[in-house]
């Protein structure tokens, strides 16, 4: 359920406070831009709310919108799109990505209010295209995006952007990539009291130690949905077991997985397999990545 009333309340409270200060001649440029965005959001609403009607009427009587337009320096759409590109490619956290998406939304909303609908729609469309190309990165924001869509009419300029983000939810649970690496030397070393890890690397993975913990870096092919979970599956002959980790950090081209202390990894392997493999037994270690949430089970295709 979406709290559109909370959204309207935010607009009304902040809008009235800023409008009163505007009428007293006291808004700084950033505040003037904020008021412009809030007035634009009033126009987007699909329903009429009395407190927002009052805000709109009061602003119209004072001819606020064109006067605000003279006061503010609108952000450059191209700069916002570049910042969005940075946030998407860097795999920044959902809150930072959300913030820049809202910056784009704000500008589209302000442009729309000022009669520049074509520029506003184009900005939102280009931002939506970027989200689509960064498959899966905006999945955590899809619920919020559905809520935002409920606060605007279908004619609002920012619709394309939030429809794209809301649609990202469809990517959840998709099996993305299958990677197989032999981590047998690692497990054998981990069982040793005098264990020290030499960094291990191979095609598409690196294994290193950081602050007493084992860290696995796995390459993720460009264009894959953002992995959120990893399952480590061990197999020795007929014995097989698996457990899951969260992908703790995503950066360009790969993810980091914190495997814990060496002893924890060894104990998990022992619990899963019953015993560590004998020296002459081949141990297969497979990492499965999914774009599913948390510890969702990984499809065994």
């Amino acid at each position: 359920m979406t709290d559109t009333a909370g959204w309207q309340r935010l607009i009304a409270e902040q809008g009235l406070e800023l409008l009163e200060r505007w009428e007293q001649g006291g808004l700084e440029p950033a505040e003037a831009y904020r008021l412009l965005v809030l007035l634009g959001r009033v126009e987007q609403l699909p329903v009429r709310a009395p407190e927002l009607e009052a805000l709109r009427d009061r602003a119209a009587r004072a001819n606020v919108t064109p006067r605000l337009a003279e006061k503010v320096s609108l952000p450059e759409g191209s700069e916002l799109l570049e910042e969005l590109s940075q946030a998407l490619e860097a795999g920044d956290g959902p809150e930072a990505l959300h913030t820049i998406l809202l910056d784009v939304d704000d500008l589209a909303t302000a442009l729309d209010l000022l009669g520049n609908n074509a520029r506003a729609v184009e900005l939102a469309r280009r931002a939506a295209d970027q989200v689509a190309k960064a498959t899966g990165l905006a999945v955590p924001l899809s619920g919020w995006a559905e809520g935002r869509l409920a606060t605007m009419t279908s004619r609002s300029a920012a619709v394309a952007l939030w429809k794209q983000v809301a649609g990202e939810r469809a990517l959840l649970g998709r099996h993305v990539v299958f990677i197989s690496h032999s981590l047998q030397p690692l497990l054998r070393q981990a069982a040793s009291a005098s264990w020290t890890l030499e960094p291990v690397s191979g095609s598409g993975f690196e294994l290193f130690e950081s602050e007493g913990r084992l860290v696995l870096w796995l390459e993720v092919p460009a264009g894959s949905p953002r992995p959120q979970a990893i399952e480590l599956r061990l197999r020795v002959g007929a014995r097989e077991g698996a457990w899951s980790y969260r992908a703790s950090h995503v950066e360009k081209g790969g993810i980091y997985v914190d495997l814990g202390a060496p002893e924890e990894l060894r104990q998990r392997a022992v619990q899963t397999l019953g015993a560590l493999p004998a020296a002459n037994e081949p141990l297969e270690v497979i990492a499965w990545l999914t774009s599913g949430e948390g510890d969702d089970p990984v499809p065994s295709t």
Partner: peptide, 26 residues
């Protein structure tokens, strides 16, 4: 020309917006 007060206001506004909508918003 940006002021520290502008940063505070922008952060508070975004915090409220990020948490007000969504499946269990508000």
């Amino acid at each position: 020309a940006v002021r520290q007060e502008d940063f505070i206001r922008a952060a508070v506004d975004r915090m409220k917006e990020l948490t007000v909508l969504g499946p269990q918003g508000g």
